Amino acid sequence: MDMRQLQTLVAVADTGSFAAAARIVNLTASAVSQQIQALEGELGVVLFDRRTRPPRLNAKGEEVVRAARGVVRILTETRAAISGGRTAGVLKIGAIRTVSMQLVPLAFAAIRPAYPDLTFDLKVGMSEGLMADVAAGRLDAAVVAEHVGVPTGLIWRPVLTEPLVLAAPAGAEGRDAAALLSDLPFIRYETGVPLARQIETELSRMGVRPAGIAVTNTMPAIVGCVAAGLGVAVVPRIALLDVPLGLVRAVPFGDGAITRRLGLAERQVSARAEVLKALARALGDAVAPSPAELDPPV
């Protein structure tokens, strides 16, 4: 088993076929097939289901691919370190939607001068799926909300804590959260993520049963509904970063004590540890005040 075989295996997994992988690793399709067969012989296991066209990775193959990604990454960076080379390659980062529009790009820009040979690949998704991608080696790390079920082999490094606020349309001045929830229709965030449950729990604690007008599963859609004047919604303050001044007001929610923590999920052993530490610092430094005015408590 050598480095070239592992690189070829990863290329097949990423592209979905031997022919497409051949273009990535600069081999013929038959040479790719020979390398995979040689790898299977050395490991003593079949990695692909060849009854399908193109052949698909089986369960053992998926397991070997996860290990191969880590080995290739570590060997590549070790070679660079020994030779005095600079950190290079692609940093594959996942992020939940609310931090993907400004926070993560700002962090990328902040670490770019220290790692000029590094390029970035940003995937936007839900916390659970992104952490699964980190565990499988498809991502180096992911910016996700605090999560009770961090997969084995991963660590979750907190980078910032943000308050939840009641987002209200323009013209809603002079009323606190309870009054606004009573007076205006409610736009509900309905997903299986912890944040949605956290919002519902606090509304229940407040004894508030707002009259619903809309349900959606993305924060940008919720903020758009509020800006259009449909009603109010509970959102993380960071979700209002892109809202033009005057369209939405941010009103304290839950006495300002209801917060969401964001962090970086990464593997316990990572060849990208140095870069990820720099990224975590940059994420904490990148938080900017929201353009939406924060009403004082009434």
Rank of each mutant, 00 (worst) to 15 (best):
A168C: 15
R23F: 00
V232L: 06
V45K: 14
G231A: 01
I111C: 04
R281A: 12
T8A: 11
R249C: 03
A21H: 04
A80M: 09
E266V: 07
L160T: 08
I222A: 08
R51M: 02
P151Y: 00
R66A: 15
A172R: 05
G129C: 03
E190I: 11
V124L: 10
R272G: 04
I199Y: 06
V275G: 13
M126Q: 05
A141L: 09
E190H: 10
V104F: 12
R53D: 01
V193H: 01
D140H: 14
T152K: 14
T259E: 06
Y115L: 12
A68T: 09
L154W: 03
R138H: 04
L6A: 05
V232Y: 07
R157Q: 12
R69S: 15
A141R: 05
L154K: 06
D140C: 08
R261W: 02
R86F: 00
L245Q: 10
R86Y: 04
A286W: 05
R249I: 04
V193W: 00
R197T: 02
E202N: 10
R157V: 13
P291C: 14
M101F: 11
P169L: 08
I111H: 09
I24M: 04
D176M: 06
T152G: 13
Y189E: 09
V226G: 02
T8D: 04
I36R: 01
V148D: 14
V243C: 13
R197D: 08
G149S: 13
S270Q: 03
M206T: 07
L240S: 08
R197E: 11
P105I: 03
L39I: 08
L160G: 09
P297Q: 04
V159H: 08
T28I: 00
E128F: 07
R79C: 12
V32Q: 02
V64P: 06
M1E: 11
D242M: 07
V104D: 12
L184H: 13
L106Y: 09
I238H: 03
R23D: 13
E63G: 14
D140S: 07
A29T: 00
P169I: 13
V104H: 03
S270C: 01
T259L: 00
T8W: 02
A67E: 08
T152A: 15
K60Y: 12
I222L: 09
A286M: 07
P289L: 15
N58Q: 12
L43V: 04
R272E: 09
I96D: 08
A22F: 13
D140A: 05
V269H: 12
L9Q: 06
A239T: 04
L91W: 03
K277M: 08
G137S: 03
D183H: 05
L195S: 11
I82E: 14
Q198Y: 07
V46T: 15
T76A: 15
Q198L: 15
A88S: 14
G174I: 10
A221N: 07
P220E: 13
V90R: 10
L91Y: 05
S290V: 09
A107E: 02
V72D: 10
T201N: 13
E162L: 11
G16R: 15
N217H: 14
